[in-house]
Amino acid sequence: MKTFDYRILGKNTPPRFLGAILDTLRGTSSDARQVVEKTSLLIDNHVRLDAAIDEQLKAVSMETEAAAINLIGQVRKLNDAAVALVCYLDNSDQSTQSMGHGLKDSLASIHLISKFVEELPDMIRGDVAQVQTTALKEIDGLNSFIGVIKEISMQSKLLAINAAIEAAHAGEAGKSFVVLARELRVLAERSAQAAAMIEKGLKTAQQAMREGLALSPMENHIAEAGTIVESILHLQVSNNDLQQHYKELFEVVTQHNVSLASEIAELLGHIQFQDVVRQRIERIADSVAQRNDLLKELPRRIGEPKLGMIDLETKMRGVLDDYVSKEERHAPTSDAGAGHDALPKFELF
């Protein structure tokens, strides 16, 4: 910000308007009265004008302050919105990552299940074949027992016939033996029937074992399981893409947000100029008020001996010196385009 160099005023420069008045007063007394009247009117108008200007300057200070505060509020909202956006993206990224982990876990389980389903038919086939072989072997073993039963039945039958012949030879004494021979024949017949029934049952069992254990078609189920695994794989790939997309988006937005926050911080710094300018206006207004108080005394002092004018001139110079001194105290620092001898803008003790 460019500032007025008050040093150019110089401490020995005579106040021009006072000199001009003194020159005029060297004329006639009626002229002098006229000059005093005119000067009085002029000063009165000048003071009123300054009062009006001062009022406007105060309004400017208030209005710019209100505008600055409004601007700060808007900037803050902008920052909050940017932060909210980053938070939203961060949450979305985390959700996607969590979903990705879930999918990965599910996929691992599904892979295991799929492998099991794939191997299951072979496992069942193997088990069934083993059971079948064992069962057929056992049935074959039972077949040999049928032969034994049949043989026993045959021998019992022969025995019964022989017994009946022998009983007939024995006459009365063989009567009870006839009963035994009859029972033996019945047993032999029943043994033969049982052997036939067992044989038939075993044949049926063998047939069932060979034909009835055909496996249900599992290939369709296996294909379905494969399709599911494939779909989940695709889903995982899409999820990875989505994650990558969110990551890139998050990085870009975060980068923009950092730069936006930095710009906002600088903007908030620049807004401080409103206070700097307000204070400068206040210093000007204060000096103008002091000057006007002295100017109001001018018409009265013109009629007084020369000493009164000198006193006024001294006071006016005092106002000027005070103003220049205040402005020097608030001079720009090295960071704001001042000379080499200026003090630094920041100083840590």
Partner: peptide, 22 residues
């Protein structure tokens, strides 16, 4: 007993940097 002297206006980033120092 002041720790440091800052002249208005101070840029936001500069202010944060100085605060981190103190």
């Amino acid at each position: 007993g002041a720790t440091g002297w800052l002249v208005k206006p101070v840029g936001g980033a500069d202010l944060l940097k100085i605060i981190k120092q103190v």
